[in-house]
Amino acid sequence: MKRLLVVDTSVRVLYHSILVLSLYFLFAGHNQPGGGFVGGLTAGAAVSFRYVAGGVDEVRKAFRLRPWTILGGGLLIAVVTAMVPIALGGSVLEHGDVEWDVPVIGVLKTTSALPFDIGVYLVVVGLILMMFEAFGDDLAVDDEYGTMGVGDALEADSVDHDLGGLTRAVDPELHTRLREPGDGRP
């Protein structure tokens, strides 16, 4: 894939600043505009810049973890945050706040809604990465082969792209059986 100097350089400048902005949104979200979802979308925008610059490989380089691990981890954090109050005898999703007196910075106040927001942030980022993983590659394939016919699409590794590569490598025989157009009847 041909890379453009202007795009590359500007993405290098923009990427990290947008990520910082997304973190700002995440932390400011409790009582100002922002929050996990908005922050996650902003981070997703940053990732899409990388995609524009260097394709799906560049996106993979940016995040070492697999997309579904990020998504699942986010969901896990959010659900556990929702469940902790039940274990402590409160009601689901109830939240409390903590204040720390940090020496140099001053008083830090945070609420237990923050972990929930972090969870949402990770879910959104994971989802966007998954989308790039699932659809980012195939477009490149199509550039190479032109448009794909039915047979090509079935033979191509499209199965592996379902759910962002969340498909297991099992015996190919099972794959073909599942993919048989059994109900594409006359």
């Binding site: 989308m131 699932a134 659809f135 195939d138 448009t147 794909m148 016919g149 039915v150 699409a153 079935l154 499209s158 109900d183 594409g184 009847r185």
Partner: peptide, 21 residues
Amino acid sequence: LALGFRAWQISNDDVVEDDVE
């Protein structure tokens, strides 16, 4: 969108077809 992409992958088109059955 993903579904449309898949339909385009399979049939090179995204027209919603009639029920075969």
